[in-house]
Amino acid sequence: MLSLQRNVALGALALTIALAVLGAFVPEWILYTCALVLAKGLVVLGLCLLLRMNLVSFGQGLYYCAGAYICGLVSQMGISDAFFLTFLAALGSAVVGLILGLFLSGYRSVFFAMFNLALSMILYGVLLKSISLGGSDGVGVAAPTYLGYAPDGEMRLYVFFVFALAVAGASSVFAFLYTKSEMGLASASVKDCEIRLEYLGLSVRYLIIFNFVIASTLAGIGGALVAMVSGHIIPELAYWTTSGEFVFITVLSGPNGILSAFGATAVFETIRLVAGQNMPNSWQMLLGSFLLLSILFMPNGISGLFRRAKAPKPDAVGEGINND
């Protein structure tokens, strides 16, 4: 019964350790980019869960920003423990997600997307005007410590990278098991037939809120990571282009993968990095063309590629599950 859980956890642990070891040998700028990818990948992971229900949030920056500001502002008060800050950010963004989810769960399609966008722009506006929260300049975030351990100099980024890996790894294990669970499976069927779910005895609204809270929590965790690695928080984290970027990457990823969420984020950040350096004035055009091609040739995103490559589909729900 528990062997799926165990196998996935062990696999994730092995991958995390391998990446942590690899990370010791790469230059700082790559490490920094990887930390960024892990942070943003978590936001994308949450969006993938929503996309499985045919819901797209064009305002995920709101929860990302909320997590980052909770982390940043609490660190201003002299608390620098990365675990604690991440936990607070997760909790805070979950609460925000729950409150807004109660309202948003009544909407679908473009209304859902746009209400999220509108709410995120309200947060952006409020932060811009709040002098005590740093206004448009934002505020600095103190270097994180880890249960009393304060790495210095060169170690700082590496230790954070390992921390981010662990957080992303744990979140991914949770997300994977969730998608295979009864609630995860029911969520994936919302887009097909809400009526049947209601007639089976399930509240679709409850299900949507539940997924929405998970997605906001993941976004908040991503925000906390970004705050700690960049050492700075600014209102732009809630700006609509930030949210648009996440949607862009989510489309690239496709809804069905866990690793593909991070893979797509890595591809996106790499293109931006490389193209941004070599063609500073037209990298957006390159990104746009890239998205166009990927939608044309990979309608289910990166995760879709692996799906098709796998056996002729049948057991998507029950893989490796006959653990008698």
Binding site: M1, S181, L185, G201, V317
Partner: peptide, 17 residues
């Protein structure tokens, strides 16, 4: 969904299969 109705508990991690 039916089982959950009987158990009255929502489990986000119990394997659907």
């Amino acid at each position: 969904v039916a089982l959950k109705g009987a158990a009255r508990s929502h489990s986000p991690l119990r394997n659907a299969g």
